[in-house]
Design a protein around this nucleic acid. Sequence first.
DNA 1: ACTTGCATACATGCAGCCTGTATGTTAATT
DNA 2: AATTAACATACAGGCTGCATGTATGCAAGT
Lengths: 199, 199
Amino acid sequence: MQVEKPRRSQAERRAETKAALMNAARSLFVQKGYAETGTPELVKEANVTRGALYHHFSDKADILRAVIHAESQAVADEISAKTDPGQAPPDAFMHGAKAYFTAMKTPGRAHLLLLEGPNVLGLEEMAEIDRQTGQGTLIDGLQHAAAHGQLPAGISIDALADLLSALFDRAALAIASGADEGAYVTATQTLLTGVLKPT
Amino acid sequence: MQVEKPRRSQAERRAETKAALMNAARSLFVQKGYAETGTPELVKEANVTRGALYHHFSDKADILRAVIHAESQAVADEISAKTDPGQAPPDAFMHGAKAYFTAMKTPGRAHLLLLEGPNVLGLEEMAEIDRQTGQGTLIDGLQHAAAHGQLPAGISIDALADLLSALFDRAALAIASGADEGAYVTATQTLLTGVLKPT
DNA sequence: ACTTGCATACATGCAGCCTGTATGTTAATT
DNA sequence: AATTAACATACAGGCTGCATGTATGCAAGT
């Protein structure tokens, strides 16, 4: 019995172990939570050693950072794939929200992006990641709506975007946790149409 | 130099050390965060030993639980003191929200109740604490509004309450973090009046 | 083509800290 | 005086981050 050693290039080797670590991390962080997952258990699941882990990532939080980043990117991709860029503001928000809800239904994703992420990395860094991946879609949309006179005068777009963001997140989390999707979509829609008055 | 030993009753002694521990915990958890505060540091600040800590609390999270509970109770008390029970739903929510924002301005309170609490104890337990202290004011208010036909037909009160709760929390956190209070109050009001249509 | 030197990608071992518990001690209550 | 509550002290286990050791791919020179 000889274990085969398929001579891999450094780049391949590197990519494979990094992927193995991130897969194991995603799985365990979702299953048991970040704090309850130790690095010994993590590397065992990934079939590498702790040395490899600390070679690829600066510390334990850095793995979560990488996982979160990938997950956030996936959400942004899913949404932009299902979103029509030239859509009128009244419906555009609701379509975007639904796409967001759908993307967040991917198992474990809501847990990672809405719970573990903010907990470990903090709200500021999560906002920064959102900016890098999602490019501040919400604020753009609101500014567009404001330009068309569909927002009440004198309202702060930043504050409104912040509140709506919290709203969407909570809805996504509830839906992903098995709550009645229809109820949350309806409630979200009601709140949205309440601020966005037609031209 | 003789250190005085003021013969205290067991009840006094117990209350004093417990208070010292909770004060130290509140201070350090706010200053450095829960995870970054070790029990050795905590007991040093409280001038007791780790033995006392584990005599009064089952584990580290149990101290945070006690602090959170007290803080949540304080919020509930402040709000109910400034709230008129027999107020019409259109304004009642906004007055309640403002009272909530004000109560949450107490230094460290937002950090404890909206960040550390959910992180460490989880959303479910936080909801349970809210139920015990705040007695589900929001849902009551919404049901009252619905009974007077001030809510859109077919909307889920539970879902709406959940979303509004997330909204208020985010606003409170932003305000407590130094954001422009007026902007958030206005945005909150706009969203609220959007769902609550007058009779 | 082959070796020589080097950098990359890990593996292993160690030091420090932290949590929870078990056991010991003092002081109040009965 | 006996008992029990309220601590204090000591210990075991685990986990993180780093420091050091090793092997493998790679690139250059000859």
